[in-house]
């Protein structure tokens, strides 16, 4: 036994997001371990199950069942044109900081979240750094044509 990376994955549309998570919660997934997002801008041809929407963003929720020692991962495609998704705050209050982090770094708005503000970046920051079209901010180093010794 080395790692337990193989978890159950559910791909749910945005309209079925809340009901899916609610059903999982009532099925014993007491703890929302993690909530993050992925920007698939440069990897749109990723493998997806049949019928799942192929959108730029994906919100990924990791739920954990303590009673059954199981994990399930819910992947929700979120379109770029309307980057919004309902909040899970009413089901799992612990997602408060995680949803703020996703909003801060990806610009995905969680509707119904009590405090949809930036959490890691400064309040007046422009842009959402973890998006793939956001530059890495590296200063290019010019090795050629440097003035040589005279």
């Amino acid at each position: 036994m080395t790692a337990g990376g193989a978890n159950e994955v559910v791909v749910a549309g945005r309209d079925r997001y809340l009901s899916t998570v609610r059903e999982l919660q009532s099925n014993g997934f007491e703890l929302c371990a993690d909530l993050c997002a992925v920007d698939y801008l440069g990897h749109m041809d990723r493998p997806l199950p049949e019928g799942a929407g192929r959108e730029r963003f994906e919100v990924v929720v990791n739920l954990l069942s303590l009673s059954r020692a199981r994990r399930v991962r819910v992947r929700v495609p979120v379109p770029e044109s309307e980057a919004t998704i309902p909040t899970l705050f009413d089901l799992y209050p612990g997602v408060e900081a995680m949803e703020r982090e996703v909003y801060d770094l990806f610009g995905i708005v969680f509707i119904g979240h009590p405090d949809m503000t930036r959490i890691l970046m400064p309040e007046d920051w422009e842009g959402h750094p973890l998006r793939k079209d956001y530059g890495i901010g590296r200063v290019p180093v010019q090795f050629k044509e440097a003035p040589g010794p005279r």
Binding site: A3, G4, G5, A6, N7, A33, D34, V38, R46, P47, V60, N62, R71, R73
Partner: peptide
């Protein structure tokens, strides 16, 4: 290889 995983 292509894919995604969560390990804790």
């Amino acid at each position: 290889p292509e894919g995604e995983t969560y390990v804790a």
